[in-house]
Structures are given as structure tokens and as C-alpha cells.
Design a protein around this nucleic acid. Structure first.
Ligand SMILES: [Mn+2]
Ligand SMILES: [Mn+2]
Ligand SMILES: [Zn+2]
Ligand SMILES: [Zn+2]
Lengths: 154, 154
DNA sequence: TATTTATTGATAATGGTTTTCATTATTAAT
DNA sequence: ATTAATAATGAAAACCATTATCAATAAATA
């Protein structure tokens, strides 16, 4: 369920302030665009979408905002191997929570999956604990992707 | 144990021919460089290392060769988020087989780990089977990375 | 109000990777 | 062996996603 036009959920504002940032119009609109898609948009994709709502925005601001959002943990940044970064809201959209990706080497299609996530997460927890201890490495995040060919490409 | 100078294991030659490629001197030397390190080299790293042995080589050839090696499955290409691709022989070196990575967000250090690989691989097998069926997706490869802070950076 | 600070967008620069193209090496055919 | 076709190479130029610069504007603070 998208938030009402251009506002976003209330806690976002506090989150921004808490990190010493201002929740400006460009930033709100970028969040809105991300919250209303289930695709994995590039910076330019986002720029084009935002531009329709807020024509004054510049591509530079999109990049800068995305950097902030990633750093705040609101957005994930991915590399699927097509030469440009892709971004995804870390919460949602539409209650699609934490998930991993299937990446088609043929056509570049990205499939979100949440199947087996429970088993995966359980193992990840265990693995993280072991690795943290052995290497004294503080794990904050993980990346899991499967590569192969989608139904149309094999 | 590195192969003797500039030759590589015998089966490599056949592998190249089988894919319609010639095993030339630049390609051999690039393979040698990759086989004699446990680091995750960038194209330029490889270029510089190869250049000492084979000064006539160009960076272009390094890129082209790496593309071929990746496509043949002899080399893995990684993105650890530092803006350049990194390459690693898929076999070895020194009998370090299949492994995953810890990536330090602080200093960029990469740690290879094989711990828990057995459990992971077991789960991956199961997951792959399930995903292949549900999405009719033919999985050929997977990527697992943990991000966080190494001992020196936390 | 005056002053500081953060944000923005146009433009230019950066830098890893790809393309182009003429040359050379290798293979196949004669 | 000679010749003809094909593959591989390297220098240079082009590409293109991302970053840095900088002057202008908006917001927060004193
Ligand atoms: Mn996704
Ligand atoms: Mn490795
Ligand atoms: Zn596909
Ligand atoms: Zn570190």
C-alpha cells in the first residue's frame, strides 16, 4: 500500500532528522518512486520517474539521495552485472520483506524469491555466528544471488 | 603448486580448443598470474603483473582474455563494491576450492572462507532444486557474500 | 534580521571498460 | 611451401555510469 502522495510514512521524517538530514521534496519523491515499484530501478530509471512528478530534479541529486538512503539502510544497492547499480527499498514494497534474487544470465531478468528464506536465514544466522567468532568479523549484511537461465532463456 | 613456467596444466589447452579459442602466450601468462596468487586481482592488477613477464601485452587483451575465461568458467568475476571488477581462478589456487567471501565495508579487505561450506552447500542444493522447479529457472551458479567490519575496522 | 549550514542542479571531470581498426600471428587450403 | 582465410593483438579513441566542482538557493539558527 503506497503512502499518500509525496509524504511517506511518518517515521521516515524522524529517521532523516536522526541522521542529520532534511527530508526535502526531492528526497520524498525518490522514496515514493521506490515505494511504488517492485522493480529494481537504476539511478537513471529513478531520475526519469521522478522527473515526471518533479521536473526540476537533477540526476546528481538522485545519486546523492540514493547514497544517503543506502547509508541509512532504507535502500539496498545491487549489482546484477549489467553495468549499472540497481536500487530497492529495504522494506516492501507491498510487504515484500527480505528476499533474495534469481538473476537470468540470458535476458537479465531478476526474480525475487522468498521461498526457503526461513531455512536460509536459519543457516545464515548460524554461519554468521561462526564466522564472526573465527574471523572476529562483525557481519551486518549478506548477499545471496543465484545465476542461471529463466524459463524463456533456456 | 604453480604449473611450470608459462605452460599450465595440460587439460587447459584442450579446454581452449574445445571452445574454439587458441591458447596463446598472453592467455597462458594471464592464467599463470591468476594461478599464483590468492588475492582478488583487478584487470589492472593483472595487467601490471603480466606486464613484468610479457611487456608487450596490452590492457585490452587482459580484459578480452578475462571475458573469455569467465565465459569458459575458468575464472569468477566479482564486484566487491570498490568500482572495479575482481577476478579469481575458479579452481585453486593451491587447492583452495569453492569458497565464499567476507567483505569489509571499512577497508575493503576480502576474506575467503570455507567454513560451514558443507552446510551451506547442502542447503543451496535443496534451495536450488526447489527454485528450479517453482520458477523453472536453470541455476548454474551462486554468489554468497557477507558484509561487515573486519577486526581492524570495528 | 543576520548568519551559518545544508541542499540543489548544471557542468565538467573521472576512470573503468569497450569499440575501432590496422597489424600480426595462426590455421586451413591449394 | 605459398597462399588465402581466420583469429588474436595492442594503441588509441570512444563510451558511459558515477563523482567532483561550484555557484545559487533553501532552511535552520543565533
Ligand atoms: Mn528484489
Ligand atoms: Mn576468494
Ligand atoms: Zn532470461
Ligand atoms: Zn576492514
Amino acid at each position: 500500500m503506497p503512502w499518500r502522495n509525496g509524504t511517506g510514512p511518518p517515521w521516515i521524517h524522524g529517521k532523516f532528522q536522526g541522521c542529520g538530514y532534511r527530508l526535502t521534496m526531492p528526497r520524498q519523491v525518490i522514496m515514493d518512486v521506490l515505494s511504488q515499484t517492485s522493480e529494481h530501478l537504476s539511478a537513471e530509471d529513478i531520475y526519469l520517474a521522478v522527473h515526471k512528478i518533479y521536473p526540476a530534479i537533477g540526476l546528481t541529486t538522485v545519486y546523492r539521495t540514493l547514497e544517503i538512503l543506502v547509508q541509512m539502510g532504507l535502500v539496498f544497492k545491487f549489482d546484477f552485472g549489467d553495468g549499472r547499480a540497481r536500487y530497492e527499498l529495504s522494506e516492501g514494497p507491498k510487504s515484500i520483506g527480505h528476499h533474495h534474487h534469481l538473476v537470468c544470465s540470458g535476458c537479465g531478468r531478476i526474480i525475487d524469491y522468498t521461498d526457503f528464506i526461513d531455512d536460509e536465514v536459519e543457516l545464515l544466522k548460524k554461519t554468521e555466528k561462526g564466522l564472526s567468532k573465527k574471523y572476529n568479523f562483525k557481519i551486518t549484511n549478506h548477499l545471496i544471488q543465484f545465476y542461471g537461465l529463466c524459463d524463456k532463456c533456456q
